[in-house]
Design a protein around this nucleic acid. Structure first.
Lengths: 191, 191
DNA sequence: CATCTTCTATGACGACCGTCATGGGCAACG
DNA sequence: CGTTGCCCATGACGGTCGTCATAGAAGATG
């Protein structure tokens, strides 16, 4: 079972990766932010930083996926987009555009040395796409189109998040969401 | 005037940022990759790493912007999308999905200490959006819609690039581009 | 009580980080 | 010729990085 301090480390790692990236976040930062003891790092994470990052990525992935699942039970296609975007919107604003997506942070630094870390990130993106696709399917979007649309949504929202950080403004995300919603609605009506 | 070695440093920095990110790229890496002399770093870049990164971001920004400009002179709306996406496609494949966008790499690490660097990244994104928007305008897309569509294109393509790196596959980019082209075409016909 | 497992404290390791000071080469120009 | 200014070599600085070894506390189990 995960100890308290162990879980706090994972959460803090995810939190810090969002702002400073993988290389930019040191073990000492994670210790300081989580209040976890320094001596037990390699007790909980024998494979070191890469393992901690891997679990942080999975943690963030599961967390957001649960949010998407909960929100897509409503039924209509536009709310599936809202589900995915709502969380990022909060993160951006509350951090004053300093924080983004930890999975992105890990992905944009190639890790030939830690292939499992890269795989974990890919799995999270895949998970989000699948959950969104079934959500769109329930809303009446044909299956083959739902998968493609889900891919576009994940890509566009992650990209918009980056634009928001650069411009220090939520407008890019709102604009992109508006376009995506139109698209999802149209796709649901065609069927 | 920019010396040879100075320009090589900027190009190498842009190149390395794409793979390893800002924090993940050291001055020594830039020296090794560019073959530039170590002693003249702070002669050419008195403000240190942040200044080098700033110029690397601008270099990459202008480079790609020239490509967009050249390709959008054709005229139709779909080719404007192709212009933006073609370069990233090459970068991804040639690097075996190890390299992405240097501007993204700089943006996803918050730099409260180097505000000029963050501003340079924002300026580049703005430049790309504007160039794409006028390209769409020339293709018959109404102005107010062209700006929004350009934003979506930049966001979706940058996001798709990240997905491609994670999945080690160009399919996400191709899927997203197909959707974007449809959208651009529709927008041009409505006018 | 003793024993065993789980967790933590402390301190250090070699390597690398960005940065800078000093001095030498080397051209251009007077 | 001498001198001025640009460019580079070298070596080091203090700091931080990820990592690990060693030893001790805490708590359960017999």
């Amino acid at each position: 079972m995960g100890t308290d301090s162990r879980e706090r480390m994972v959460r803090s790692a995810a939190y810090l990766f969002r702002e400073r990236g993988y290389s930019g976040t040191g073990f000492r930062d994670v210790i300081a932010h989580s209040g976890a003891p320094r001596g037990s790092i390699y007790h909980h994470f024998p494979d070191g930083k890469a393992q901690l990052a891997e679990e942080a990525v999975r943690y963030a992935g599961d967390f957001l996926n649960a949010g998407i699942l909960a929100a897509t039970e409503g039924g209509d296609a536009a709310s599936a987009v809202d589900a995915f975007v709502g969380w990022w919107r909060q993160v951006l604003i509350r951090s004053e555009f300093r924080a983004g997506c930890p999975v992105v942070a890990v992905t944009v630094e190639s890790h030939d040395d830690a292939p499992q870390l890269a795989k974990a990130a890919a799995a999270v993106f895949g998970l989000w796409q699948d959950t969104l696709a079934t959500g769109l399917g329930n809303a009446g979007v044909p299956d083959h189109r739902a998968a493609r649309l889900a891919r576009l949504i994940v890509a566009a929202v992650e990209g918009a998040t980056i634009l928001c950080r650069a411009h220090r403004d939520v407008a890019p995300l709102d604009d992109v969401v508006a376009e995506l919603k139109d698209m999802a609605r149209r796709a649901a009506e065609e069927e």
